[in-house]
């Protein structure tokens, strides 16, 4: 499956799409990246006097790359046709944060699958900045639901 096809299947759009590129993907894990552009609206308020990317958005970025992209890939590998009908629910996230991410910084997310059973995907995710320093890491899991037709 082509990286582009996975990106097209993502159920997100601007301003809540946090995936630019998938660099590699296989049944064990995924690597992708995203640049937090400085013109994003949330920087006006987080914080008022100095812009820092909110931790929840770092978590979201980890989840979109590490969990959702990988989940779509795994479902397709199983022969499930993931179209517009895919629904995803985050079921848990346990994150630790080490470094701030500033406007226009590019981050790399690396995710490795712990298990994918009964449509639940659990992954260990790590995010690095462009100096290859660990920004955050944690465990994220989510449920994939497919609305079958007929």
């Amino acid at each position: 499956m082509l990286y582009k096809e996975i990106l097209q299947k993502l159920p997100y759009a601007h301003p809540f799409l946090f995936v630019d590129e998938i660099v590699s993907i296989n049944e064990k894990g995924v690597e992708g990246n995203f640049t937090f552009r400085s013109d994003a609206d949330f920087y006006k308020g987080h914080f008022k006097d100095h812009a820092v990317t909110p931790g929840v958005l770092l978590t979201e970025c980890c989840a979109q790359i590490g969990l959702v992209c990988l989940g779509i890939f795994l479902l397709e590998e199983e022969g499930v046709k993931t179209g517009k009908e895919i629904q995803i629910g985050l079921s848990s996230s346990e994150m630790e944060f080490y470094k701030p991410v500033f406007p226009d910084e590019k981050v790399v997310v690396k995710s490795s699958k712990q298990y994918f059973r009964f449509n639940k995907l659990k992954c260990e995710v790590k995010m690095y900045n462009d100096k290859e320093k660990l920004v955050c890491k944690g465990m994220i899991s989510g449920m994939f639901k497919l609305n079958q037709h007929g």
Partner: peptide
């Protein structure tokens, strides 16, 4: 128990 935790019960 939510559906995600039910998977954990099963595992």
């Amino acid at each position: 128990i939510n559906s995600a935790n039910l998977v954990d019960v099963v595992l």
